[in-house]
């Protein structure tokens, strides 16, 4: 284990360093994954490029119709931000189940995304919000939808010299709510056995589903949106019967593995139950907002 630690002052400088030292360079932010991987000898970079202190990448910015989260935003900042106590609660709920406070004070949401763990807790909420990523690389900037960004377990379409700088998503229309549910073997400090994020919008004057976005983590090689379940719900009355059917369809679309945490069958069962519960929670929240 021997590497040089570089501390660029700007994104451009960071990208230049990564290009100069590719392919033995690697970016590090909070380090809560990277340093452990180095200690376990899973990775052995000769150059670590510290992006943690790059300016302007830790801000949570709200505009009239959207939010932008700097890629270096810490989970604890999401958890304690007043903007995520309303219909964007899915973000607060997911941020608050990652590790302990010590990890949440330093680990970054951008790090969680680029790691692309199938069990990453912060990815399903962002998928359910249809988020997109702003990326800077040697050729300039580009944007990509999160659903296209993660391609498999630990794999993304980010080149090793590119940096995710921010995550953007639109605000939700009226009569919308979100929810995040996680199941593990214990209540804290746990990797998800399955996690589910849901975003539900009801039609203006009925209790029918106008728009539904679901995202499921740890039940496939990458977190995914069960499109059949989502499509089934459009125009259906929001309630137990339709939510249970959506859960069944989502379970059918999942492709979980058996591992030390749970069997594939158990995971599939969880998907069905958790999708139904997440949607039920959204519905309750919409009703509470309108009281």
């Amino acid at each position: 284990m021997s590497f040089d630690l570089h501390r660029p002052a700007t994104v451009t400088e960071a990208v230049d360093l990564a290009q100069r030292f590719a392919p033995t360079a690697r970016y590090v932010a909070g380090g809560t994954d990277t340093v452990i991987q180095i200690n376990r000898k899973k990775i052995d970079p000769a150059h670590l490029i510290d992006v943690a202190c790059l300016p302007g990448m830790s801000e949570i910015t709200e505009t009239a119709d959207a939010f932008a989260l700097g890629a270096l935003t810490k989970y604890r900042s999401i958890e304690t931000h007043p903007a995520f106590r309303g219909n964007l609660r899915v973000l607060l709920e997911a941020a608050s189940v990652v590790g302990g406070h010590q990890v949440r004070n330093i680990a970054t949401i951008g790090g969680n995304i680029v790691n692309a763990s199938p069990a990453a807790d912060f990815v399903p909420p962002l998928l359910a919000l249809d988020a997109s990523l702003d990326i800077t690389g040697p050729k300039g900037r580009r944007s990509v939808a999160l659903r296209d960004f993660i391609v498999g377990p630990g794999r993304t379409n980010l080149s090793p010299v590119e940096i995710v700088t921010s995550i953007r998503f639109a605000k939700l229309p009226a009569r919308s709510a979100t929810a995040f549910l996680k199941e593990g073997r214990r209540r804290a400090m746990e990797i998800s056995v399955v996690c589910v994020a849901a975003c539900l919008t009801l039609e203006a004057s009925t209790s029918r589903c106008a728009s539904v976005r679901l995202a499921i983590g740890a039940a496939s090689p990458k977190a995914f949106r069960p499109q059949q379940a989502e499509g089934f719900l459009i125009g259906k009355p929001a309630g137990k019967e339709s939510f249970a059917e959506a859960g069944r369809l989502a379970a059918e679309a999942s492709s979980p593995i058996s591992d030390v945490r749970a069997s594939a069958g158990y995971r599939r069962g969880l998907v069905a139950v958790m999708v139904e519960r997440a949607l039920t929670t959204c519905l309750q929240r919409i009703r509470e907002q309108n009281q």
């Binding site: 380090g31 809560t32 202190c53």
Partner: peptide
Amino acid sequence: LDGKAINSCILLAGQ
């Protein structure tokens, strides 16, 4: 670290 609890075992001192 600047008032916030962190795990010092996996934080590179250079950071």
